[in-house]
Nucleic acid binder design. Structure first.
Length: 396
DNA sequence: AAGACGGGGAC
DNA sequence: GTCCCAGTCTT
């Protein structure tokens, strides 16, 4: 039997989060006593839903699937594993308990809460959407899949997931897990990355979502992909629907899903300067668009072929900041970092200035140790900042 | 249709 | 270390 979800009754939600649960449809699908499936539900779905009721993981947004919690969690879960998301989600909800508190917060606070989670445009879009919901929709969350889809940062997957899980809508949420489970189940030896494949899968899956509980069906498919139908070495012996699975029957699980070869990514080098003066260190905010938009970084410069060594590049960067040659550079640290489309080696140099230089533009700042802890940084910059603070701690 | 956009976990 | 993972937006 389906394990009853705690706190799913509408009256236990806060008024601000309760606006979408008044419709009969929402109550029907999310009601604790609603059946997960009817007698005409295919046997494989009954097996899947039973498996889910027993094996689903505890997640902080599953106790109370309000639109706000489900929306925030689904944005965080894009390209990110559940185990990585949970601590971020807990902190985020503590800091921004309602969509209003998120809408009222400055962007920098939101980016700071997102620090280390990656894909920072998600945080910017989340903040933007909170403003839309609070200021333009009077705090009313969307209800239908199409309404969700219109919001920044909400694509086809997230719209279907939130609409089904939080709003009781019938929709097929197709993430990487579902693509893998579905292509194996049906033995589809086609490239899963094409829009054509996705449209076909959605058309097929929506028929099944319609005849059971779409929220549970979507979550069960994703959970099966995350726990059993793994990319490598799937645990077919534990799979509740292995008898319906064409890939299992034909020993195709290692060739399905089919994916295009990923091109090797280039490696880049960059010099980074830790320029300190009077217990403060020089930092710069990144532009509003592009890589790690809006986050802060230490002064840096790509190490291209015109520089014969990292120390020469470091000196050239110091020169461009009009730092006198009398200030000596000291090799400090080397940090490796991987992005999706390139990998990077950061060559970090240290320089103590007798007198602070004039800041080139308003996006530069002299930062105290406290500033370093407060500003949003990418993972690699945080590693450098922590090392800098630790050294500062030792020397004082 | 292809590329930009982070970071973490499994091996 | 190396490979793998896979939503949304932009171009």
């Amino acid at each position: 039997m389906i394990r009853p979800q705690k706190n799913m009754n509408a009256h236990q939600r806060s008024p601000a989060e309760n606006t979408q649960s008044k419709s009969p449809l929402a109550n029907k699908a999310n009601h604790p006593l609603a059946p997960a499936h009817s007698r005409k539900t295919p046997l494989w779905i009954q097996h899947l839903l039973h498996w889910f009721s027993v094996h689903q993981r505890t997640m902080p947004w599953r106790d109370d699937p309000s639109p706000y919690k489900v929306w925030v969690s689904e944005i965080m879960l894009q390209q990110t594993r559940v185990t990585a998301v949970i601590p971020y989600f807990e902190r985020f909800l503590g800091q921004f308990p309602t969509v209003q508190s998120l809408a009222d917060a400055p962007l920098e606070k939101v980016l700071k809460a997102w620090e280390g989670l990656g894909y920072y445009s998600r945080a910017r879009n989340l903040h933007q959407t909170a403003k839309i919901i609070h200021f333009e929709r009077n705090g009313h969350f969307p209800k239908t899949e199409a309404e969700w889809l219109a919001l920044p940062g909400v694509g086809p997957y997230t719209a279907a997931a939130v609409a089904s899980i939080a709003c009781g809508q019938t929709a097929a949420a197709i993430d990487g897990n579902v693509m893998r489970v579905w292509s194996r189940l049906r033995g589809i030896r086609e490239d899963i990355s094409t829009p054509a494949w996705r449209n076909k899968a959605r058309a097929d899956l929506i028929r099944y979502a319609r005849i059971c509980n779409a929220s549970l069906f979507n979550q069960a498919m994703m959970e099966l992909g995350a726990l059993v139908c793994l990319p490598r070495n799937p645990a077919c012996v534990d799979c509740p629907i292995r008898n319906n699975c064409i890939a299992h029957r034909k020993r195709w699980t290692d060739i399905i899903p089919l994916r295009k070869k990923i091109n090797p990514v280039p490696h880049r080098h960059e010099v980074v300067l830790l320029i300190s003066s009077n217990k403060k260190v020089l930092m710069r905010q990144r532009p509003e668009k592009g890589l790690l938009a809006g986050l802060w970084k230490f002064p840096s410069q790509p190490l291209d072929k015109t520089h014969t060594s990292s120390s020469r590049a470091a000196r050239a960067l110091a020169n461009s900041l009009h730092i006198p040659q009398t200030n000596k550079l000291q090799k400090h640290q080397r940090v490796e970092h991987a992005f999706t489309h390139f990998t990077q080696t950061l060559h970090v140099y240290r320089m103590e200035l007798a007198t602070a230089i004039k800041l080139p533009s308003p996006d530069w700042r002299w930062c105290s140790a406290h500033d370093l802890d407060t500003l949003p940084l990418s993972r690699s910059q945080r590693i450098i900042a922590n090392e800098y603070n630790a050294e500062d701690e030792r020397s004082s």
